[in-house]
Design a protein around this nucleic acid. Structure first.
Lengths: 344, 344
DNA sequence: TTGAAAGCGCTACCAT
DNA sequence: ATGGTAGCGCTTTCAA
């Protein structure tokens, strides 16, 4: 087996110049189709399958690699249906444009990753990053798209979380329930499931969860209803395990809330399951709403009333925005209230 | 903003040699902790965040990048719970070892991707790849792990599909149902949902699906039961949409099968949903089994009887095998029959 | 179409 | 602990 063949050696073997071999791989218009054909075929036979990636990138100053920088760990993000759908959209468009996908996480080791950060030609930040990877990357001047957060001067793709939350809450609260509960995601800085306090309620922030809470609260006002902080849960991670614990707490309240507003579908689906176990009828006894419209939400029984935030489309839009450097405008994707049986 | 700073310029600015700066980033033991500290801090202030990736990789002949080569498109794989869980396991171990994750697909453009193939230090092939990326990569002599398939001389991680399928089928068939159906995945080469013919049944192959079918058939024999090819479905993709169509066909058979063996949990969960819609009681009227034990399988109602194949662990094991080049042995992971209410 | 050559930024070696 | 430097493999320019 010929171990390491390089372009130069191949060109010698084939009796052509290095420039010609390079052109065969990179610029088909610089040589006759026939010669290109021959070079491609014969070099493959020799075991040369194209220019060395590192050398090419070094020389060209570009790599055709795009990084998605996840706010959470890669592993967790892959387990989250929302992030996962977003990545599907990204992968789709990258594939069409022959770009490679590198997954990074702002939650991982700074020093080790910072060298890898010089590889990609562009970055999609999914969720507000921790650490200072964002600053490092910004300084390189490479194109960046911010998704689900905003930063000065950077193009972003977002949804209107407050409006979405308002619309679903307003729908759910329309017939004036006496008691309601909110199962919130990442509302305060704690790894534990807990309920909010009065001062927790009024924190001002542009975080996703805070915007959603704001939308909910506006709906309560609109309907002239009140919600006590003790009926607002904080769940630190969007996992069924965590959500079920909070769901159990909410569904064993006395009196039982007639409406439970959940900040994600994963949470809402957990409520549905726990309710089922406790023989609580949905929506007759408790109406449940989610947020996201993940695939599972339309398949559940009863179907989940939720806010569709088009995660795959978000991924596609963000990626197109990154690749075609034309439009300098940020995008707000529409959300849509999806009414299903869990809150008819 | 200082645009492009390189190591040489940084070393001049800091008044030290290039070797020292390089050592500061790469070999902490080659200089005093104090000096290293200073260099790291001051170069960060200058806007230099570590060696250029392409140059470093070119020079070192290694990149700290590991590629997972997916048999299907990246986008589809991300939507598949089994592949997704596998990737979670991979990402976990890569993170611990400070390796970066590059997602490739053997289903994508050969020419464009083949240059990127020279980047990773190692490859995990998830599922038997199409095209000849496997041959190309093999020739480089870089470490490769094959997952869910086997090839001469390559370390692999597999499960015993036949045994797993046998155990679940044998359990399901124990009280001699008069009619049974099999909802199979990728049994023949067709993009359409269809049922098998007599000659389809006897194809010999080491593919996952074929092994599972073999296990099922062995269980039928063991129980002295027969299954007609017309009661064996082929489903081309592991998606709920496809599965529901086949499920509907199987659940509207007359007479109704008392047992439906499904080659994946996604399929089995679809059967559960369709049965629910058709008011068919599970497991009273129809017993349903799956394969994989995806997270959704334990949360469904009724819970799904299935074969646990430890997808995340598979990812971890494959990645460890790749990184520690010690053990030259392939691995067969245990499968475990998980009995839940859908087939008690 | 070709040959020659510069140089992308870095690491590792050697000598000091 | 440092300075100097070869060379990793490639693309691109230039002149022929």
């Amino acid at each position: 087996m010929n171990k390491k063949l390089n372009l130069k050696q191949v060109s010698q073997q084939l009796g052509v110049s290095t420039a010609t071999v390079s052109n065969a791989f990179n610029r088909p218009d610089q040589l006759s189709a026939k010669l290109r054909e021959r070079i491609l075929r014969e070099s493959a036979e020799l075991g040369y399958h194209g220019p060395n990636f590192a050398a090419r990138s070094l020389r060209k100053g570009a790599s055709d690699v795009v990084a998605v920088v996840l706010a959470d760990s890669i592993s967790y993000s892959l387990s989250d249906p929302v992030a996962s759908q977003f990545l599907q959209g990204v992968a789709e468009v990258l594939g069409e444009n022959k770009k490679q996908l590198l997954l990074l996480s702002s939650a991982s080791d700074e020093l080790e990753q910072s060298s890898a950060e010089s590889l990609p030609d562009g970055f999609i930040f999914y969720g507000a990053p921790s650490g200072n990877i964002f600053e490092r990357v910004s300084r390189t001047g490479k194109p960046i798209i911010a998704v689900d957060f905003e930063t000065h001067d950077i193009e972003s793709v977002n949804i209107n979380n407050e409006e979405g939350a308002f619309s679903v809450a307003n729908h759910a609260l329309a017939n004036k329930p006496k008691h309601a509960a909110v199962l919130g995601l990442r509302l305060v800085d704690s790894q534990r499931i807990c309920r909010l306090t009065a001062q927790d309620m009024s924190v001002e922030s542009k975080e996703i969860s805070r915007s959603r809470l704001k939308g909910y609260l506006r709906a309560f006002e609109e309907q002239q209803l009140a919600i006590s902080p003790s009926h607002v849960w904080h769940i630190p991670l969007n996992t069924p395990e965590m959500a079920e614990i909070a769901a159990k707490e909410a569904l064993t309240l006395n009196p039982l809330p007639e409406v439970i507003l959940c900040m994600s579908d994963v949470i809402a689906l957990s409520v549905l399951r726990v309710a089922n176990k406790l023989n609580i009828a949905i929506p007759q006894q408790v109406k449940v709403t989610g947020f996201d419209d993940i695939p599972e939400a339309q398949r559940s029984s009863p179907g989940l009333t939720t806010v569709c935030q088009q995660s795959p489309e978000k991924g596609r839009v963000a990626t197109r925005l990154l690749l075609k450097n034309e439009s300098k405008d940020s995008v707000i994707l529409d959300t849509r209230l999806v009414i299903r049986a869990s809150c008819g």
